[in-house]
Design a protein around this nucleic acid. Structure first.
Lengths: 188, 188
DNA sequence: CGTATCATGTAAGCCGTTACATGATTGT
DNA sequence: ACAATCATGTAACGGCTTACATGATACG
């Protein structure tokens, strides 16, 4: 039901068509939730059937703009307040971290350096988003829509970036002090 | 294909039955990847058909112990080296962060304090795992199986915990200085 | 003798991806 | 005229959850 709630959140800010919402997922919500138009269109139809949103009459080119209803807003608040957050993980990056020891040290380090770079860039991107947000809302309003989520992203991505650097350095250091002795699957 | 790779990683450490692997997911891999027996049994059968694992003859009570093959180990390394990590997010916690402004300040703060507590506990749990790992391997070997992943978890969860505290404090502070003026959806 | 745990499976259904498919409008 | 972008859908398939289903062994 998270897609549904994400759509309600976006529509609560501003009405929009399936097309609009698809783009908003690609932009502001990219670091939070991901969805394609092929999932969004049918879900909006179901939400309309359930009375959580209403559709305008068709606009320019078959364009149909949805707005959130009172029932939709109630459902959104209910989910946030009463539904237990799902904390069970399924994290590609963490799985790779877990499995990394099966790689020879140089391959492992290469992977980690690439991760460090990717997450550095993600942090930079989110910092730009925050800067833009602070600019629009005039002086850092921490309760602005998306502001809290962006801050969370910066901290999470930053943590991964720092971890990747730390891990790569650890492995490099071990390599040097142990000389050409052993490195794991390479068989010394 | 991540479930497949996770299973290969576990079997690379030690052979085991579907039942064993289900428990190992619940224990060591809980913070990394999650899977039920209903998913694991058929996947092991498919992996055996593909030659990535082999099954012993049936043991005590229909128990069938799987071991990784050379092809399995090759597939594991190939995935780690050559498959592009999937970084697109779908994160319940981040979605809640994004939507949080729709809640009245007291509800938002209550949610954040609960998150802070939950993630504090997760960090403590992982720190215990690391302590146990360091104990077994005798003096911190950062390349041990699961050691890197545990360290990553500690940092990620720690980041979320710190964020939750920060966010709750921000909202509390804004509440106090603005008096009973406004809080968002409560209509002043 | 009954309960807990070990042990394995299958089926229905939801959520999400990839790919297929179509057509209107705007700008060059 | 043609391309880009706007705009909406559907179908097949894969991954995962929930629920159903069965039976063996150990322990008290």
């Amino acid at each position: 039901m998270s897609l549904r709630v994400a759509l309600l959140g976006l529509l609560d800010k501003q009405p929009g068509s399936g097309y609009d919402l698809t783009r908003r997922f690609d932009q502001g919500l990219r670091h939070v939730w991901h969805a394609r138009h092929s999932q969004i269109y049918p879900e909006l139809a179901r939400m309309a059937a359930d009375g959580l949103v209403v559709a305008d009459d068709e606009g320019p080119r078959g364009r149909r703009v949805y707005s959130i209803t009172e029932a939709g807003r109630a459902e959104l608040r209910r989910w946030l307040r009463d539904v237990e957050p799902q904390r069970s993980r399924r994290d590609d990056g963490a799985l790779r971290a877990f499995l990394l020891p099966v790689l020879a040290a140089p391959d492992a380090v290469r992977h980690l350096r690439r991760e460090e770079k990717a997450y550095s860039e993600a942090v930079a991107e989110l910092e730009q988003i925050v800067a833009r947000l602070d600019d629009e809302t005039g002086e850092a309003d921490p309760r602005g829509y998306g502001r809290l989520a962006a801050e969370l992203g910066i901290r999470q991505y930053g943590a991964v970036r720092d971890w990747a650097r730390w891990a790569a350095d650890q492995i490099d250091a071990a390599e040097v002090t142990e000389g050409s002795e052993q490195s794991r699957p390479g068989e010394p």
